[in-house]
Amino acid sequence: MKVNVTVNGVDHSVDHVWALESLLDFLRERIGLRGTKNACEQGECGSCSVYVDGVLVCSCLVAAGQVEGCSVVTVEGLAPDRGVHPVQQAFLDAGAVQCGFCTPGMVVAAHCLLADDPVPDDLTVREQLSGNLCRCTGYQKILDAVYLAAERAGAAPSRQGSRP
């Protein structure tokens, strides 16, 4: 099939997409955006988290054909002009990155969480990010990163942005 989709603001029209091809494979292999990661491919780990029309999804569980006419935002599209988004900066500053394989998905999920709830409490962060597995950090530094991003956004609310 043919799929027309906007990814990170760029229009793509891709031919010969397989009926069972996942959005994850589509992004990685057709569009060449490999920042979205392939860790379980059954919706358990969140490494492939992206936005579809502003909704956070596991791209491994979405068929590429389902995003026809949609706007997809991946980790590569969070920051304008190839910079680093404040949520990404907070991950760096808080020490939330080790091997980093979970990081793109975790960053997208944290971005979504803060867009919905700019000052989340501890259990809310834990619950909202519990669909994103990390094997390296023990999560504490990721929590710290979310709080840091929230705190910085509070100082300058316009920087946090909203869900794309």
Binding site: R28, L33, R34, G35, T36, K37, N38, T74, V75, E76, L78, A79, R82, V84, Q88, Q89, F91, L92, D93, V97, G100, F101, T103, P104, V107
Partner: peptide, 19 residues
Amino acid sequence: APRPDGVPKVDGSFVYSSD
């Protein structure tokens, strides 16, 4: 000190063996 591979790991450009 910050990780030298930090920015590519948060912006998705870091190349893992599966990439």
